[in-house]
């Protein structure tokens, strides 16, 4: 096994997983609910990006912001339709979880109707895919770009949450919605912002993932959903830094199990990891206590 090569693979793939999982972590930390429609938003992001490139013949660097915007808006709609009405009725968290499963099914069905079920690809030449030369391992420009974009978006998110006024409001709402209200913060607006950001991250991850594997179907979110959930359990549910670290760990686990010849079992291995963490370290491997959740 070429270890250097596997580490390189794990790093760029980890970027996508972290980006994707951050959306789960963000919604969980602010609202305390798991949004199981997140992977469907991811898939929609990929298809929005694809549509921008194929239907409108726009360059890929435009596809990513458009997909982020589109998926962000889907995130807001998701909140308005699947979460906000339940929140207003003080419905238990479990019913919000189930509502998000319903929304996921609906989003996948609409995508099947709109885009069909055949795998679709970005036109060849969207991004050059011959490996960079002169390196001791194989890496393509797209993989480099994926890693850079993931890291930049993660840094921006970290900055937004930790350093800006609106980020502080998000953390206040995450800590306690009533107290946030007493501070003059409109939680409803913060919830929508959170869903927008989570959607935008999923959208970016969707396009990047679509570019990396160049095969998109309405069901492409299923496999990623499992990995994303493992990532956030690993990182400690609402923990943003934990989600980043967890993304790279899960990618490494996957990449190395494929390299070790057990590619048929890669999902089973991730599942086993999920099971073991839930059993032995339900607070997550990475973080101390959850940063934002009270």
């Amino acid at each position: 096994m070429n270890v250097t090569q596997q580490i390189v693979n794990a790093i760029w793939l980890g970027g996508v997983y972290s980006l994707f999982a951050l959306g789960y972590a963000l919604v969980f930390s602010v609202l305390g609910v798991l949004n199981l429609a997140h992977s469907a938003v991811f898939m929609w992001g990929a298809f929005i990006g694809l549509t921008v490139v194929t239907r409108f013949s726009l360059p890929i660097w435009l596809a990513i912001p458009v997909a982020m915007l589109g998926a962000g808006i889907i995130g807001i709609i998701l909140d308005l339709v699947a979460f906000a009405p339940l929140r207003r009725r003080n419905a238990p968290r479990i019913s919000q979880l189930i509502s998000s499963i319903g929304a996921a099914i609906l989003l996948v069905n609409i995508a099947q109707f709109a885009f069909g079920t055949q795998p679709q690809r970005f036109p060849s030449g969207t991004i050059p895919n011959q490996a960079l030369e002169g390196l001791p391992f194989r890496i393509t420009p797209i993989q480099v770009i994926i890693l850079i974009i993931s890291l930049v978006l993660m840094a921006l998110l970290q900055y937004l949450v930790m350093r800006t006024r609106i980020g502080q409001a998000m953390r206040a709402v995450a800590f306690n919605q009533r107290v946030a209200g007493l501070l003059g913060i409109n939680s409803g607006g913060i919830f929508q912002l959170t869903f927008f950001l989570a959607g935008a991250l999923a959208g970016a991850a969707g396009v990047l993932y679509g570019l990396a594997y160049n095969s998109m179907t309405p069901f492409m979110g299923d496999g990623v959903a499992l990995k994303g959930l493992t990532v956030i359990v690993l990182g400690g549910l609402g923990n943003i830094q934990g989600a980043v670290v967890g993304g790279f760990l899960v990618a490494a686990l996957e990449v190395f199990s494929i390299a070790a010849g057990s590619s048929n079992y890669r999902d089973a291995i991730v599942f086993t990891l999920l099971f073991l963490i839930l059993l032995f370290r339900p607070q997550g491997l990475v973080g101390q206590k959850i940063e934002t959740r009270a």
Partner: peptide, 8 residues
């Protein structure tokens, strides 16, 4: 009970 935001 004050309700300051302990994590900030």
């Amino acid at each position: 009970g004050r309700q300051i935001i302990a994590t900030m």
